[in-house]
C-alpha cells in the first residue's frame, strides 16, 4: 500500500518536472534541450573570455591564447578553477566552512575516549606491502593535483580527497594504526585561517574581499593566476586533513566502560 502511494507520488513529481522543463511556453527563459545551450547569451562567455568585469557592450574581447596572453583578468588556464577560486571564491569559502562544520559534527558525534575498532579481518601480505608501495605515489599525486589545479583537471578538493584515501588505506592495511587526529585538526585550522587571511589581504590591497592581488602572469605557466594556486593548495591541505579526520573518527570506537 505504502509502496503504491509512493510510486504514484514519484510519478506525479516526475511528470511535473518533465512538463515544467520541456513543455513550458517559449519565453526567453525557456529551458534549452540537451546540447543546445548557447554560451553567448550566458554569463559563462565572460568566464571563458576572462572578460567579466569589462563593459561587454563597448568592445569585442580579444581571444585568450594559451602561453601568450599576459595579465588576463584571471590567469588560470582551467576555466572551472577560475570560476571556483577566483570569480566565486567567496562561495568556495562558504563551501569549505560547510565541510568544516560537517567534520566538526562527526567529531562531536563520535567523540569520547577512543580506541581502534575491533579488527574485522586480518590484512593479507599483499595488502600490507602493496599499500607501502602505493602510499607515497598517492600522496605525491594528490599534491600534484592541487598544485596544478589552475592548469589541469583536478584541484584542491580532488587532491585532498586522494590524500585522505591514502590515510584510509593506512587504516585498512594495519589493524593497530592510529592517525594523529590532533595534527589533522591543527592543519585544517591553520589552512582555513590562512584562506581568510588571503581574503583580508585582498580587502586591504585591492578594495574587496578575496581580491586577486598578485600579478596573474602568462596563462598556462605554473606560477600564474595570482592567489589561485595558493588558495587551492590551502584548500587541498584543509580538505585532506578534514576527510582524514572523519575517517579516523569512523575507524575508532568508544572505549567500553
Amino acid at each position: 500500500m505504502k509502496q503504491a502511494v509512493s510510486i504514484v507520488l514519484v510519478l506525479l513529481l516526475g511528470a511535473f518536472i518533465f512538463t515544467a522543463l520541456y513543455f513550458a511556453d517559449s519565453s526567453p527563459l525557456q529551458f534549452k534541450p540537451y546540447g543546445d545551450a548557447d554560451l553567448s547569451g550566458r554569463v559563462s562567455q565572460g568566464y571563458v573570455d576572462k572578460n567579466v568585469t569589462a563593459d561587454a557592450a563597448s568592445e569585442e574581447p580579444a581571444a585568450v591564447v594559451y602561453g601568450e596572453t599576459k595579465n588576463a583578468e584571471t590567469g588560470s588556464a582551467n576555466i572551472v578553477t577560475s570560476v571556483v577560486v577566483n570569480y566565486r571564491s567567496f562561495d568556495t569559502l562558504g563551501e569549505v566552512t560547510v565541510l568544516f562544520v560537517a567534520a566538526l559534527g562527526v567529531g562531536l558525534l563520535l567523540s569520547g575516549k577512543r580506541r581502534r575498532q575491533e579488527a574485522a579481518f586480518q590484512p593479507s601480505f599483499i595488502l600490507k606491502h602493496g599499500v607501502r608501495i602505493v602510499l607515497g605515489i598517492m600522496v605525491i599525486f594528490g599534491v600534484y593535483l592541487f598544485t596544478h589545479g589552475h592548469l589541469t583537471p583536478g584541484g584542491g578538493f580532488s587532491g585532498g580527497s586522494i590524500i585522505a584515501a591514502a590515510v584510509l588505506l593506512l587504516y585498512v592495511s594495519d589493524n593497530a594504526f592510529k592517525a594523529k587526529v590532533k595534527a589533522f585538526k591543527i592543519a585544517e585550522g591553520v589552512a582555513g585561517s590562512l584562506y581568510v587571511v588571503a581574503g583580508l589581504l585582498g580587502l586591504a590591497l585591492g578594495g574587496y574581499f578575496l581580491y586577486n592581488f598578485l600579478p596573474t602572469g602568462v596563462v598556462g605557466d605554473l606560477l600564474s593566476a595570482g592567489i589561485v594556486p595558493i588558495v587551492y593548495i590551502l584548500i587541498g591541505l584543509k580538505v585532506g586533513s578534514e576527510i582524514s579526520g572523519v575517517i579516523a573518527g569512523f575507524a575508532t570506537e568508544e572505549e567500553a566502560l
Binding site: 545551450a37 554560451l39 576555466i79 572551472v80 583537471p153 596563462v219
Partner: peptide, 18 residues
C-alpha cells in the same frame, strides 16, 4: 573548458564552465 597547448584559444567552442 580548459586551455591547453592543443586547444589554446578561448575562441573555440567550450561547454559551459559555470
Amino acid at each position: 573548458p580548459i586551455l591547453t597547448s592543443q586547444n589554446n584559444t578561448s575562441a573555440l567552442l567550450y561547454v559551459d564552465p559555470l
